[in-house]
Design a protein around this nucleic acid. Structure first.
Lengths: 250, 250
DNA sequence: CTTGCGTCTGACGTAACGTCAGACCGTAGG
DNA sequence: CCTACGGTCTGACGTTACGTCAGACGCAAG
């Protein structure tokens, strides 16, 4: 029963079949992550089935986000506990995703503001930055809310927010625009304020680092020149500021 | 009306207030992204309010995921269109998040398999890799589904899947285990098969690159030794394979 | 022998800084 | 005035996962 199948491939063909490059194979070889099965007399690398399997494992672990160094450890399982590694890795990735969620939310806001209003790019850009930094405000806002209120808000808005943030921002903008003339203290406008805050909360999310940093930044601006000019120059901004002020005092 | 506020800070203090490091300021200075307002006679950097604002913008754009090079462009708005840049950036980030979602899903699966079954780490690990690569199967599976069926599955499962993948995997495992003795062709088991496929689809998601690569990898294994041994050695795996086979033929 | 295509080994480039290392500044205490 | 302590400066190397030359060699066909 001879195995007619070709058993060994040279670098290029192997790389192609594996969906990677020769240079990558060199790299893995040099760092001891994947050594070829053998060499020709001329020193050309020869890869076999076992190599393919190992490469497959490497690709998989890379997909999951491990570094090559970690992969080397895992594949030689030198004292490394797979379960723990996976758990840690999952937490790391989830953190990254939360960050991306907030970034997406911020971008959605930017998109909304650029479409709904007709300011120059630069002005709008200024506002975008301002809004993102507004997370700082949450520090103070939090003292106005009770724990339960915050938890409630979080429960109602947080999970889906990041996903359809774009929709939400657009809708909110439309609603606010429609309510422009009304009393900022009215039930209706106050509900808009609540939604606004919730949206801000969404991409403020749970990143303590950024919140702190920008918080310091913002506080600094205020201290620096007494009343640092905040760029809410448009109607909507002014209107919402009134509404939010009332909302927070309640 | 004199402004009593200190107007200039030295590197360390400025960095601290801005929530960054001196070395970062050096870096930004050297690459021309943020030049200090002035220097002392000794050559020490002095930063002012304008610098703080600019740094704030830099931090914000970094948060959104732009590279320093891009930020430099954006802040000098040399031919760069903000709207387009933001849109592109959003797509990029969303792609990244989809990748993370699939990775998380894969890790959730790993977690589930390691908890529910009592194999050695290594064996389970082998399966994890196998499952992730199983996305390759979707290539063939797709020829069994109609477009509408796929769309339907995607609609029903895709959005929420990535979020609560862990739960879903655990639940599915429990259900499958409970149904172990039954007829693989029964309505009940077939529904489990549908769920199984849907979960696999979830982290197979929409990444054409990885799907292709691993597809090639897998196809190769099969060709290489005729019938390459697939590591579904456990009861659940064998059971589900039967059920899935029937499910796909339907 | 010459083409053409493939392989090998360095060596440098990338992104965004962190981490020394060696040298200098500035102020308070002795 | 000397010195310690803390801050600043520049330059150079380290990090991650390879990509991109560059120069030299292998091998089969015409």
């Amino acid at each position: 029963m001879k195995t007619d199948v070709k058993a060994l491939y040279q670098a290029h063909e192997f790389a192609q079949r594996a969906g990677t490059t020769v240079r990558t194979l060199h790299h893995y070889d040099r760092m001891g992550l994947l050594k070829p099965t053998g060499y020709t007399r001329a020193g050309f690398r020869l890869y076999g089935q076992a190599d393919l399997i190992r490469l497959q494992q490497i690709v998989t672990l890379k997909f999951i986000g491990f570094s090559l160094k970690e992969i080397k450890q895992l594949l030689s399982r030198n004292g490394m506990n797979l379960v723990d590694s996976l758990a840690r890795q999952k937490q790391l990735i989830e953190e990254k995703r939360r960050h991306l969620d907030r970034a997406i939310s911020a971008l959605a806001y930017a998109e909304a503001i650029l479409k709904e209003e007709k300011r120059t790019d630069w002005d709008a850009f200024h506002d975008i930055i301002e809004v993102i930094n507004m997370q700082q405000d949450m520090k103070w806002v939090k003292s106005y809310y009770t724990e339960e209120q915050l938890a409630d808000l979080a429960k109602r808005y947080d999970p889906e927010l990041a996903r359809k943030a774009e929709q939400d921002w657009k809708q909110l903008f439309a609603d606010v625009e429609a309510a422009l003339g009304e009393d900022p203290g009215s039930e209706k406008v106050q509900q808009l304020a609540a939604r606004w805050e919730a949206l801000i909360t969404a991409f403020t999310g749970g990143d303590p680092g950024i919140r702190e940093n920008l918080g310091r930044l913002y506080a600094d601006q205020s201290n620096w020149q007494g009343d640092f000019k905040r760029p809410w120059s448009d109607e909507i901004g002014a209107f919402m500021n009134q509404a939010l002020a009332i909302y927070r005092q309640k």
